[in-house]
């Protein structure tokens, strides 16, 4: 039993070290990507198209729904305490700082994380990776780096759109409940919005994008030879991404509020 525990710990530690090494290599290739962008530029564009642009619709709907919900809840609750002005602070905290990046990350994980893991897994099973290696193309450089950059960029851009649509949705419902001029609405928002809030949301999106891309690419390349491993890789990519995203969110939030 002790031998089994020891082997399990050694294997887990080896996986973590391998994962860290993989992440480092992927990051290095991503930094170098812009020097040799002609290699995977098309892959990057397609990744942003699939991960970012195609997720915009669901992200926008979700953002507007969240904005409406916050406005409806806040309008009834905060008004009871005479703190109606806190509505704008609440919107900024929920949409810009906390829920925006998190929900965007969940959308991207569910859509693109699984897609990346299964696509790369399929390429491994079909020996395409071996072919790239055989012709001297680094799969991390050609397949991994554009996906990582694409997911990170898509996360950042989607997070910005999430803010835009979330605040627009809130404005739309405000026109029904308590009509306010757009200029006044924006002025009140800007009065409580700080660059720190904006950067906080973008930092979270950046970290979440790195997590989603790294885990998904890692899981995709981890497929060995059976096609049945491909969906498992997708499931594991989603599960691991969710856990790491939540842990990272807690860590970043704690660092912001305690720091």
């Amino acid at each position: 039993m002790l031998r089994r525990i020891g082997e399990s710990v050694r294997r887990r530690a080896g996986e973590i070290l391998y994962g860290l090494g993989f992440f480092y290599s992927l990051l290095k290739e991503s930094v170098l990507f812009f020097r040799r962008r002609q290699v995977g530029y098309r892959v990057l564009v397609m990744q942003i198209l699939f991960t970012g642009y195609e997720a915009l619709r669901i992200s926008a709907v979700l953002a507007m729904a969240i904005g409406v919900a916050i406005n409806l809840i806040g309008a009834s609750l905060l008004a009871e305490f005479g703190q109606g002005k806190l509505m704008y602070t609440l919107l900024i905290i929920v949409i810009t700082r906390e829920l925006g990046p998190l929900l965007t990350a969940f959308i991207v994980t569910a859509r693109s994380g699984t897609a990346i893991a299964t696509e790369l897994g399929g390429m491994v099973v079909n020996h395409e990776i071996e072919a790239y290696v055989a012709v001297g193309v680094n799969p991390l450089s050609y397949l991994g780096a554009p996906r990582l950059i694409g997911v990170v960029v898509s996360m950042l851009v989607l997070s910005i759109y999430f803010n835009l649509f979330g605040l627009l949705g809130s404005f739309a419902i405000m026109q029904v409940l308590k009509p306010v001029a757009l200029a006044e609405y924006l002025r009140n928002l800007v009065a409580v919005l700080t660059v720190r809030d904006l950067m906080s949301g973008l930092l979270k999106s950046l970290i979440f994008g790195l997590i989603i891309a790294s885990v998904s690419i890692h899981r995709g390349f981890a497929v060995e030879r059976a096609s049945t491993e491909i969906p498992v890789a997708g499931i594991r990519a989603v599960g691991a991404s969710f856990i790491l995203i939540i842990l990272a969110d807690a860590a970043v939030t704690a660092a912001q509020y305690l720091g």
């Binding site: 564009v45 397609m46 942003i48 198209l49 970012g52 642009y53 915009l56 960029v153 950042l156 851009v157 910005i160 759109y161 835009l164 800007v190 919005l193 700080t194 660059v195 904006l198 973008l202």
Partner: peptide
């Protein structure tokens, strides 16, 4: 969208960047 992927992605990213820059300028 595949044919015009470059343009779509360009507009998608540039609009977001513009919104971000505008927000930062207004906040500033």
């Amino acid at each position: 969208r595949i044919k015009y992927a470059d343009r779509i992605v360009g507009i998608f990213v540039v609009l977001a960047a513009l919104f971000l820059v505008a927000s930062v300028i207004v906040l500033g």
